[in-house]
Amino acid sequence: MMRNLFSLNKIYIFSEKTLTFIKSVFPVLLILGLTFALVLSPPDYLQGDVVRIMYVHVPSAWIALGTFSTLTVLSIINFIFKIKILEIVNLCIAPIGLLFTCLAIITGSIWAEPTWGTWWAWDARLTSMIVLMFFYVMIIYSQKHIKPKNRSLMFTSIISIIGAINIPIIKYSVEWWNTLHQPASIKITGETSIHSSMLMPLMLMLLILLLYSALIFLMKYKTEIIKVKRSGVKRL
């Protein structure tokens, strides 16, 4: 059953279909999202129009954290059950995570200049985000340049498990310690402190960036499958 589910052929066809679907809805969503984020959403009562940076900063940070969590969970499952597909998945999602970590840091720093009055501050949230970036860099390095294969796999799993401890630190840094960064606006339990007219564009932008990540992931995934199949062509 397991084998059937993860059969390369089926996955390839499935990813092909999903890709065409995403490609068809993406332009419409992108235009809609950007209009809402840049034109239709109201400015903040205190910050004015700078608040629009939130629509790219917050989703980027969420995706960066989500990607790392996925990476860790898959590494653990792979370490225990040795499922080959999961290695390929990890190989494909790590660059996406790195991209969004960098974007979250850069847009955050652009946002900080007019609001806080500084580009950078070494508070707990910002520092732990930099640490996350280094973890991504280490993971990508060990995936690409450490040989042989099983050794690189071991390094990647160890780094991702150690890095997983950083995730709750990033999440709760604004509550545990005094930081310059404000506490989370959207909580899993309890009320969100973002007005609904600004929450909607935020969610729309999150959806767009998630679809973008899926697009990149599927393309990378197809490339990896072709790589695997290519080494098998001669033997068929």
Binding site: L34, L38, D49, I53, V56, L103, I106, I110, W111
Partner: peptide, 8 residues
């Protein structure tokens, strides 16, 4: 600021 971050 806004256009720079969206652009990046």
């Amino acid at each position: 600021y806004v256009w720079a971050s969206f652009g990046i």
